[in-house]
């Protein structure tokens, strides 16, 4: 799967999960940039990613992520 396709899908998920009107994707986006991104919506985010891409994220994988770019890396690896 192309990286651009993954980021596009991820952007859609984030718009839904964080209830945003729009979102400009950047690799360095993190919880600090999005007001609605708290510990609870983070869980919803992880579960939405799992559902969309069809794999399960482990606790250690979730905890290691620093920003959305790393999430895309992880998805690329998992889908490879």
């Amino acid at each position: 799967m192309e990286r651009s396709a993954i980021t596009a899908q991820l952007t859609e998920i984030m718009i839904d999960v964080f209830d945003l009107d729009e979102l400009e994707y950047r690799d360095d986006l993190s919880a600090a940039d999005i007001e609605e991104w708290d510990s609870l919506s983070n869980i919803r985010f992880m579960v939405a990613v799992e559902k969309e891409f069809g794999f399960r994220l482990s606790n250690s994988e979730i905890e290691s992520l620093k920003n959305v770019g790393e999430m895309v890396d992880l998805i690329e690896r998992k889908l490879a």
Partner: peptide, 14 residues
């Protein structure tokens, strides 16, 4: 179990 351990969720998010 993952959601129970990381957030004390009583059931799966779904």
């Amino acid at each position: 179990p993952l959601r129970w351990h990381d957030a004390k969720m009583p059931c799966a998010l779904d």
